[in-house]
């Protein structure tokens, strides 16, 4: 997508690059898929056609209306938790050198752990309710936020810090006026990655033990070899993921209109 900026295209070219090509590619994919299913006369249990899968979303809308809110709630809970704690951790690391020395190496170690594997343990602790899903969702999305936000807070030029210091600024003012705003673009790029992880976390949490939620629905339709429902659920999960992504993207645009990514092309390049 970034390639589009190189030649500074007009709106028409931008539209071609960012809308038309993907639309054509996706339409082509769906058509090939549909034709394959129809021509080869595949069983729905093996591979339902895209039209069947999409129509299943609407045919079973009451099922999704029961299960989707549960998953959405878990995602929001885990994600909100990781934003609050992630930014707090980054702040503590940037604020205190000792904390940085303690936390940073531990984080390097912790972030390589495949957190999904904690789910069975959390089921023992919290039972089949939504708490373990929120925790897995949190664990999955926490590290990208910490890493990105801390990087952003540290990425302030030395001259910038010296400049604010020369104004007899307090440590808090230096943080609030320079490090914090500087970290926002980094935070948002971490947050966009994290929202997909939070979604995966909630789904996997439901795989391991749940009576509700889209992850439960996936496991259920899988064991019933109800591929139509399985595909419909995957579509719903994807839609939720995209919805969250756009929400964050929209908030980003709102919060950092000054950032390179959102600048209008004008004035001095």
């Amino acid at each position: 997508m970034r390639t589009a900026h190189r030649a500074r295209p007009g709106w028409g070219r931008l539209l071609t690059a960012e809308v038309v090509y993907p639309a054509v590619a996706i339409a082509l994919l769906l058509t090939v898929w549909q034709l394959t299913v129809v021509m080869l006369d595949l069983r729905t249990t093996f591979l339902p056609s895209p039209t069947a899968a999409f129509s299943k979303v609407f045919r079973s809308y009451d099922t999704f209306l029961t299960h989707a809110p549960v998953t959405i709630f878990e995602i929001v809970g885990g994600y909100a938790l990781s934003i609050v704690l992630g930014v707090a951790t980054a702040f503590v690391m940037v604020w205190s050198r000792v904390m940085e020395k303690i936390v940073s190496p531990i984080l390097v170690f912790l972030q390589t752990i495949p957190y999904i594997s904690v789910a069975p343990l959390l089921i023992i602790w919290f039972g089949f309710n939504i708490a373990p899903k929120i925790v897995v969702s949190f664990l999955m999305s926490y590290f990208p936020i910490v890493v990105a936000t801390a990087a952003g807070m540290n990425a302030v030029e030395n001259d910038m810090v010296d400049m604010v210091r020369s104004m007899s600024a307090s440590k808090w003012q230096i943080f609030w006026k320079s490090r914090f705003p500087n970290s926002l673009p980094y935070f948002f790029s971490g947050a966009k990655v994290a929202v997909a992880f939070a979604t995966s976390g909630a789904i996997v949490g439901e795989y391991v033990g749940a009576d509700y939620g889209l992850g439960y629905l996936i496991v259920l339709s899988n064991s019933d070899t109800n591929s139509e429902l399985l595909f419909a659920t995957i579509i719903v999960v994807s839609a939720i993921g995209i919805g969250f992504f756009w929400l964050i993207h929209w908030m980003e645009k709102l919060c950092i209109p000054w950032h390179v990514a959102f600048r209008e092309e004008e004035g001095h390049g």
Partner: peptide
Amino acid sequence: PDVGIVFQSPVLMNW
């Protein structure tokens, strides 16, 4: 306390 500094780069805040 009573000083103004100008560096080689403008170090203006983007935001």
